[in-house]
Design a protein around this nucleic acid. Structure first.
Lengths: 141, 141
DNA sequence: CCTCATCATTTACCAAGGTAAACAATTATG
DNA sequence: CATAATTGTTTACCTTGGTAAATGATGAGG
């Protein structure tokens, strides 16, 4: 049962803070989240953050040590792991596991700026190049 | 409040059936879902499907007509709409709205076969070509 | 030493998704 | 016609995420 338990919206925001800082106290996380919020939305309560930290720890996504009598949390799950889980979910649920299907959707329905498109091409080209290297190595041994 | 209410996992599966068939009865959907399941998982109960159809209709994702005294459901929300919502969610939650960030993750962490990669390049190149046409039109008027 | 602030813990609620039995209405069928 | 099967409706329960107040513990400041 190693299947990366899915995280909710706010849980992910908390993870983002943890990933960015490596380690943080509950108070730091609360402040950071509220700093990110625009003034017209209600700030999140500190106890809410604590509850979610608790749930994240129960799931094994984070852990804590005690320093100076306060909890210092750090992520256990890596961002790329969580990304893979979420992307995999999306692929399964909506794109029949087709990566090209997803990318086709991206360039067709999300408005992609010209330089973003160029970046996409570079990314794909480099991946192809890397794969060719691997292939020729295979062939030459 | 036109923000494409999010659909759950099974709700999406139901939508998939509806998208594929254009229209279906509750019974047809139940049978289709259970046909898709491997024998070792518990089949979904018909009443569960009916409950979810009800919730989908309450959300405005589908509607029904009555034919021969039985409900025939059809999708109101289009697949591309739902895809956009789900992809947008993923982008916001994990990729800081960066499409290239998402694609970079795809080619790096999901195993993409060589021909899949080639398809990706074609998709991106064609999008670039389309954009260049648009741009030159702009310039020439 | 007493009070205040700060943190952690407990407890409680609501919403949404999923699950499905129980019940009702109505149509087939023996 | 009586009963079985089908379909839709009602009701209920569990889980997870999110929200946060209330309570408890404990160290700091006056």
């Amino acid at each position: 049962m190693n299947s990366t338990p899915k995280l909710g919206k706010v849980q992910l925001q908390i993870m983002q803070v943890l990933w960015a800082r490596e380690r943080a106290t509950a108070r730091e996380i609360t402040d950071e989240l509220n700093r990110q919020k625009s003034a017209d939305v209600a700030p999140i309560a500190h106890s809410t953050v604590q509850t979610l930290l608790r749930k994240l720890e129960a799931k094994g996504a984070i852990t804590h040590r005690i320093e100076e009598r306060t909890f210092v949390f750090e992520p256990l799950q890596e961002k790329s792991e969580v990304e893979t889980g979420a992307v995999g979910d999306l692929l399964t649920r909506l794109f029949d596991r087709s990566i090209s299907g997803l990318v086709a959707h991206l360039v067709k329905h999300e408005k992609v700026s010209p330089d973003e498109l160029q970046r996409l091409r570079t990314i794909v080209e480099q991946a192809e190049a890397a794969q060719n290297v691997k292939t020729s190595k295979e062939e030459s041994r």
